[in-house]
Structures are given as C-alpha cells and as structure tokens.
C-alpha cells in the first residue's frame, strides 16, 4: 500500500479525496462493468436496427389472389397451365377435386414443366419429378409441391388465395380449404 502511494502522483491521494465519494478500485470496476454493458447493449441494438433496415416494409409485388374460371371449365385428370405465367399456379383437376398447385419446385425454386405425355411435372434445374397430385417421386426434391387456398367466389368462379399454402408433409392437404370437391 505504501508503495502505491509513493508511485502515484500526490494530487490523487490527497487526504481530502479519501472520503466516501472517492472512486475506489472496486467502484471503478463496477462502473467499468456498467459502462461496458451499456456500450454492448447500445452497439448491439444499433446493429439490430441495421439488420432490420434490410427488411423492407412495403413490397411491390403482383397481387396474391386471382380468379381462375368456373369449376365446370376443368376436365377431369387435367392440368391447366394457363395461370402459370402470370400467377405461378397450376390448376389441377383429378378424379374428385380441383386444387391450385404452386409452380415453385420445393428443391431450389425453379419452375418445373408439365409433361403431359409422361404425366408428371419435371424440374429442369436438378431433375426433380412430381406426380399430377404434386407428390414428389424422383430427383432431389425433399417434399411435394405446395397447394394454395382455393374457394368459390360469390360469382361462382374459383378464387385462389396464394397467401395461404398447404403442405402435404404436415397433413394440411386434408384441410377443406386446400381443395374444391367436384
């Protein structure tokens, strides 16, 4: 202790400052801790806000709902590719239902092609194949294509809502909104 006093400048050890207000060694570290925590929180918060900056609030993307004609327009076991270009949807009618199938391959998001002769959707990127129902059966796709919410609008036309999708692997194709009974 005496050694310390000798080496430190006299001003800082004058007896007047040795009262309760003096910032002792312990107090100094306490304030350092508080200071560093405050600094980390502020910096962390600042960078969080910067990350949030990357996520836009408003999107300029095409509408997510569209009308797809009358249910009677669809022949059975038929894949309608008319809505593929504009809305990224295939309208499929099998034996007992109509459903709206997403054209986004579940592997890496390419758009598969409907090969009518082979009765399957085939993705050109990595060769995934899907049956007419959307079930994957070949290639690297890990799961079936997604289906979109489908209903009948007041004018009798089919209304497809792309904001809600149904995944087979979660058992959501049982959901009444995922298909139209015919």
């Amino acid at each position: 202790m005496t050694e310390d006093i000798k080496t430190t400048p006299p001003a800082s050890v004058s007896p007047a400052e040795k009262d309760d207000n003096a910032l002792g060694r312990r107090g100094f570290f306490r304030w350092m801790t508080v200071g560093w925590i405050a600094f980390s929180v502020a910096t962390g918060g600042f960078f969080t806000v910067i990350v949030r900056f990357l996520f836009p609030n408003v999107l300029f993307e095409p509408p997510q709902t569209f009308k797809a004609g009358f249910p009677n327009d669809y022949a059975s076991n038929f894949v309608d590719t008319r809505y593929k270009k504009k809305f990224n949807v295939w309208m499929v009618r099998d034996e007992e239902s109509i459903f709206a199938l997403s054209t986004v391959c579940t592997h890496l998001g390419c758009t598969p092609n409907w090969l009518g002769t082979e009765n399957k959707f085939k993705c050109p990127c990595h060769g995934s194949g899907f049956r007419m129902t959307g079930i994957n059966f070949e290639g690297p796709a890990p799961r079936p294509l997604e289906r979109y919410k489908i209903s009948v609008a007041t004018d009798g036309q089919i209304l497809v809502d792309k904001t809600k999708s149904f995944k087979w692997e979660k058992g959501e194709w049982e959901n009444a909104e995922s298909f139209l009974k015919v």
Binding site: N88, T111, P112, N113, C123, P124, H126
Partner: peptide, 18 residues
C-alpha cells in the same frame, strides 16, 4: 419468371455446388 430454361445452370464456377 414463369419459364425456367431447360436445363437451368448456375454460373460455371458454382456447377460443382449444383
């Protein structure tokens, strides 16, 4: 966005990844 070319390839230096 509606028509994927067939075949659709990544840039050549990423073809190993593809």
């Amino acid at each position: 966005p509606a028509a994927t070319p067939n075949p659709s390839k990544a840039p050549w230096y990423f073809l190993g990844l593809q």
